[in-house]
């Protein structure tokens, strides 16, 4: 892709005491593409995401957003850039309605400081419509009554309705059945079709192959492989996850050359 990447991370390293959680990781995300971030447990996926989200401060590394170098020091910074993260626990209030959740912390009020319920409802419905989320009968029902897939859709809609440009989804289909997984994968594809950059973390390669454009494989905190979805196979990705070549063997000095493809 020739255009300027939406988000670029270069040489990100993070150490927690004796543990090297990330070592010299590069990540590139283009607008309108879905990037699958894969790796075994402890490979550093969550640490990388939290560094991008501003929750962790990397020891080394640079971030570029739309080509400009940026500093991400707090979740506020990343949100201001237009980066939204949907964590696995979704962070929804069960006792509130869909609209109330989507506007939580950013409620609109009228000149009497009263909530502008009708206007918020319309905007929520418009967002749902633009994302073609049709499984929700009403945005005025409480989240407690929604299924897992519907909740995921609400969490995603909540993330994208604030002019976000990049959305990061952490295990969006982990707790879902077949039909609901389908809904969420379709939604992910539509986000990319709307021009957003989407990063999806998942252990389920089968799901990822249906929706991503490219893969970035992490192993023991290092980026060991990049694949185009159309030019690879599940077997090749699995091999990279379990036995991808490391540029830096933990506990030893840097002996080897960089051998990613």
């Amino acid at each position: 892709m020739a255009e300027v990447p939406l988000l670029e991370a270069r040489g990100v390293s993070k150490r927690f005491g004796a543990v090297q959680a990330l070592y010299n990781v590069d990540l590139t995300l283009h607008p309108g593409e879905v990037l699958g971030l894969v790796g075994d447990n402890g490979a550093g996926k969550s640490t990388l995401i939290k560094a991008i989200a501003g929750t962790y401060h990397p020891d080394e590394g640079e971030f570029f957003f739309e080509g400009r170098p940026v500093r991400i020091r707090s979740p506020r910074d990343s949100a201001d850039l237009g980066i939204e993260v949907v964590y696995q626990d979704l962070a929804l209030c069960d006792n509130l309605t869909v609209v109330q959740n989507m506007f939580l912390g950013r409620e609109e009020v009228n000149r009497f400081h009263a909530l502008s319920e009708a206007h918020m409802q319309r905007r929520a419905e418009e967002t749902m419509e633009s994302l073609a989320v049709t499984t929700l009968s009403s945005v005025k029902q409480t989240v407690a009554r929604l299924s897992g897939g519907q909740r995921q859709s609400v969490a995603v809609a909540k993330a994208v309705m604030w002019n976000s440009k990049a959305v990061i989804l952490d295990e969006p289909t982990a707790a879902l059945g077949v039909a609901q997984t389908r809904q969420v994968l379709d939604l992910v594809r539509r986000l990319a079709d709307h021009g957003l950059g989407v990063i999806v973390i998942s252990h389920n390669l089968h799901d990822l192959f249906e929706v991503v454009d490219r893969f970035l494989v992490l192993r023991l905190g290092q980026s060991v492989a990049r694949f185009d979805r159309d030019k690879t196979s599940q077997q090749e990705v699995v091999e990279a996850i379990t036995a991808g070549t490391l540029s830096h063997v933990p506990g030893q000095s840097e002996l080897e050359e960089v051998v990613t493809q």
Binding site: L92, C93, N95, L96, Q100, L104, H113, A114
Partner: peptide, 14 residues
């Protein structure tokens, strides 16, 4: 009908 009230329910819920 106020942001404070909405936040109160939110804190109680999650």
């Amino acid at each position: 009908r106020t942001r404070f009230g909405r936040h109160l329910y939110a804190v109680g819920g999650n």
